[in-house]
Amino acid sequence: PTLATRVPTYLSFGLLGAANVSNTQTAVLSLIALVISLIIGVKYQKAIGSLSKPIGYISLFTVMIFLIAGIYLHLTGQGATTLAVESFKINMSSKADLAGALGSFSWILFAFGGGEVVGPYVNQVENPEKNFVKGLLLASLLIGILYVLGIVAVSAFGTQEDFSKISLVNAVLAGFKFMGDKIGLGIWFVKLMGIAYTLITLVALILWGTSLAAGVFSEAPEGTFPKWLTKKSGYNGILRNALIFQTILAFLFIALNTFGGAAAEELYYRVYDMTTMALIVPYFCLGISYIVFRYKGYVAPFQISKGKLIPIVAGFSVSFMTLIAFVFAGYNFTIPLVQQIEKIKLYYGGLLMFMLIGVIIKFFSERNHKSNMTNNK
């Protein structure tokens, strides 16, 4: 839903140079974006690879423009924010500073979340045993470098106070607008970036939708979901029903948020926040599982190291970092527990609620599956 609603926003920037789109227009254009994503996901999945490559280059090109302009402004003393050596130091001299550093570290890890969705496309990679691993390592390195340089560039175009007034939906294009105003590029530059990000986001929506369907519905043990959700198309193996189900569900979320009023919008964002911690848990579990598998001698076709020591250290590192992120993304040890109980209930209570729902669904699904197997026999 988030990606789909960004398509109309970016398109508005592309056509008008500003986020000037009504609720009805957002809902209609989001539905169109979802339908386009569904059609390409169902009928033209082989075209996704050819689509993602040029769009990836466009994305990197827009990022490089942003970074080069920001760094240039800082080097020539024209940056909106003054940078000093102290700006890059992690201050942990006090309890409050340590809590802030741990909280920032936790949320930075979220920037890497979602990388696993490339898994279903491994069969489209040439020489995947080597290139898939190299691609993941290169992507992780790029994300880390761009994260740091991006913050430096952003600080050149506006102050923290300037950006605090911008909504998350408009944040990317607002950054380019600040950049255009700062170096005198005019409204045409913002429109150009708006068109570019409309295409980038639409392709991201297609990739995200198809990979989630494959990751969630095709890999689950038999009986976890109804058969109509896990049924694959005969001619291309696409989970058509799962994609249709996802699309309907996404649009219902958008419609609820758009036309349901303030209460519905508040509910949507509460549900969104409640699912935040759910992003971290799988990485913790995967890290522990990876250690166990490699210790027992299981060898996967895709591996960075053939020995045991480096994989086990990597598994511990992933699990330890995600554990830190899990704790300190929702809890600040410098604030009395009573004062942050609502936030804790939202983040951790929401996670427990969704896990409980999952356990209940799994229990009844397995019982139903066993019953069907018995009847068939």
Rank of each mutant, 00 (worst) to 15 (best):
I183V: 09
I183A: 03
G184L: 11
G186C: 06
G186S: 08
I187E: 12
W188H: 09
K191Q: 14
I195A: 15
Y197E: 02
L199F: 14
I200K: 12
I200E: 08
T201H: 04
L202K: 02
L202G: 03
V203I: 12
A204Y: 02
L205A: 04
G209V: 02
T210L: 12
T210K: 08
T210E: 08
L212Y: 13
L212I: 12
L212C: 13
A213T: 08
A213E: 07
V216L: 14
F217V: 03
E219Y: 12
A220H: 06
A220R: 05
A220Y: 03
P221N: 07
P221R: 09
E222N: 10
G223P: 04
G223Q: 06
G223S: 10
T224H: 07
T224A: 05
F225T: 07
F225K: 09
F225S: 02
P226V: 05
P226E: 07
K227D: 15
W228R: 02
W228E: 02
L229H: 07
T230A: 13
K231C: 00
K232S: 08
K232L: 12
S233R: 13
G234V: 05
G234K: 13
Y235N: 13
Y235E: 14
G237F: 09
G237A: 04
R240V: 15
L243W: 09
L243N: 11
L243F: 07
I244V: 15
I244R: 08
F245Y: 12
F245L: 11
Q246V: 06
T247V: 11
T247P: 08
L249Q: 06
A250N: 13
F251V: 09
F251I: 08
L252S: 10
L252M: 12
F253R: 08
F253W: 14
I254T: 09
I254R: 11
I254P: 07
I254G: 05
L256A: 14
L256N: 13
L256T: 15
N257K: 15
N257F: 11
N257M: 13
T258S: 13
F259Q: 10
G260V: 03
G260T: 07
G260W: 08
A263H: 10
A264T: 09
A264R: 11
A264S: 15
E265R: 15
E265P: 02
E266G: 09
L267S: 13
Y268R: 09
R270M: 14
R270F: 15
Y272I: 08
D273W: 05
M274K: 05
T275A: 15
T276Y: 13
T276P: 02
T276D: 04
T276G: 14
T276F: 11
M277I: 14
M277S: 14
M277K: 01
L279T: 13
L279I: 07
I280S: 05
I280R: 08
I280A: 10
I280P: 01
Y283A: 05
F284I: 10
C285H: 01
L286A: 12
L286N: 02
L286C: 05
G287F: 01
Y290I: 00
Y290V: 00
K296I: 00
G297D: 00
G297W: 00
